[in-house]
């Protein structure tokens, strides 16, 4: 690891922390830094509430904090999932949604929004169908001679199938339900409250931590199967574990934030371009970079327009793709 790579790695680690605390001060309502800090600490030290304007607590604790925590963990989780699946499949084009998770989640949400209404919340329905889509992919591709190719192809097929089901539900949906679904599919970090996050965030954190802990094995899994076996690795078990954790993370994020594209594809590549291809560094740094990246994208989503809000999924693509193209042209190669 060169000196430059080390410095870049340190910057990447600091990026989400700086972004998180700076972003707590960003919003339509101007809240000075001491107001933000007092509001944050007030649940522990109730005396700090004294003298604070009434709406500060609601904005910092009820609006900004859950949103930023979700951005932090969702960005980290999606990026780590993407990096892990790319290493596992030895394919740089793989992303966290390749196994049908997004289509499954979208279909699940559509069933809830259009048919079941409040009796089956979209978050739960999206999670259930995201996991179901991956299970179907795994079941279909389990006995193939070339498991990874089969896995990716099956993922594409299952995605297409759930997309068709989604179109069918959309076709029969009432105009109201269709609008709700449309906005859900665009991705938004601002809607989930503490109730939804209390389930989603721990699942995302556990899955992300699990993948980071497996970073040593990713290097082995990205070798050929024969090489990996010769090193004494139980390939099937390890791969299933990576897929399980990536699914858990992506489904947990998608179920509350909708589909936020490109994070898991772009971020790991950016990290590889900066610090090299060793997964022991790429996986944890992808978490840091992804967290900061999604916070930044969300800052733009809620900061660019003064009053109205633009879905964050639009910005993850708008920022990431040109930046990615720029780096790609500079480095003239795809890293894996």
């Amino acid at each position: 690891m060169t000196k430059k790579q080390r410095a870049l790695g340190l910057l990447i680690v600091l990026f989400p922390f700086v972004a998180f605390f700076v972003s707590l001060s960003i919003g339509v309502v101007h809240i000075p830094l001491d107001g933000v800090l007092k509001s944050l600490l007030s649940p522990i030290f109730p005396s700090l509430k004294q003298g604070l304007p009434e709406n500060y607590l609601g904005i910092v604790l009820g609006v900004r904090l859950p949103r930023l925590l979700l951005a932090l963990l969702a960005g980290a989780g999606l990026s780590v999932s993407g990096a892990s699946l790319q290493a596992l499949s030895k394919n740089p084009l793989v992303n966290e949604y390749i196994l049908g998770i997004s289509s499954g989640a979208a279909f699940g949400a559509s069933l809830s929004i259009v048919i079941f209404r409040q009796s089956f919340p979209p978050q739960i329905s999206a999670f259930v169908f995201a996991v179901a889509a991956v299970m179907i992919v795994l079941l279909i591709s389990r006995n193939s001679d070339s498991p990874i190719v089969s896995l990716l192809l099956t993922g594409i097929i299952v995605s297409a199938f759930f997309s068709a089901l989604l179109s069918l539900v959309e076709f029969f949906a009432s105009p109201y339900a269709l609008q709700g679904l449309f906005y859900w599919l665009m991705g938004n970090l601002g809607w989930p409250g503490w109730g939804a996050l209390s389930i989603s965030l721990p699942l995302t954190a556990v899955g992300t931590a699990g993948l980071i802990l497996m970073r040593w094995r990713m290097n082995v899994l990205s070798m050929s199967d024969e090489e990996a076996r010769s090193l004494g690795v139980n390939i099937r078990r390890e791969k299933l574990m990576v897929i399980f954790l990536a699914t858990l993370v992506t489904a947990a994020v998608t179920s509350v934030a909708g589909i936020i594209g490109w994070v898991g594809l772009i971020v790991p590549h950016l990290v590889r371009m900066m610090v090299g291809v060793d997964n022991r560094r790429v996986v944890p740094l992808s978490a840091a970079m992804g967290a900061g990246y999604l916070i930044l994208a969300d800052d733009l989503a809620r900061g660019l327009a003064s009053s109205f809000e633009i879905p964050v999924g639009i910005f993850t693509s708008l920022i990431g793709i040109p930046f990615f193209i720029l780096l790609l042209r500079k480095s003239k190669r795809i890293w894996l």
């Binding site: 919003g27 339509v28 309502v29 609006v63 601002g190 809620r302 003064s306 109205f308 809000e309 879905p311």
Partner: peptide, 19 residues
């Protein structure tokens, strides 16, 4: 709150804006 040129009848606002 959205420019007329966009011709929209509705938009998404921020919760902070409502506050």
């Amino acid at each position: 709150i959205i420019p007329d040129v966009l011709g929209s009848v509705g938009t998404m606002v921020k919760i902070e804006q409502i506050i």
